[in-house]
Amino acid sequence: MPMADRPVFLERRSYRLRRMMDAVRFLPFLGLALWMVPLLWPLPAAEVAKNGIPMSTALRYLFCVWLMLVISGWLLWRKTRVQHPSEPANAQDTVE
């Protein structure tokens, strides 16, 4: 039934738009993964690294990720803003 009236394939433009929305949905997970990277850094107490990761490196890393996320979010907004966010999500999920 839900597939009945819908096209199986989309024209290029709408296809791009769908993939952009996919990217919007994916972005927070990317951010989460990147911001959880510091969990892997050795602490100064550990024997691997005597002094651990310097604060300046940590700062640079965190803020670069931040900047990257913000810029990606901005670019994606530029690409997808024609689409009203209240459009039903189900329309995007079933047709690829």
Binding site: P38, W41, L43, P44, A45, N51, G52, I53, P54, M55, S56, T57, A58, L59
Partner: peptide, 12 residues
């Protein structure tokens, strides 16, 4: 450089 030299200069 000052940050790295301070007492909070490492990731902990």
């Amino acid at each position: 450089a000052r940050i790295d030299a301070s007492k909070i200069g490492a990731w902990e």
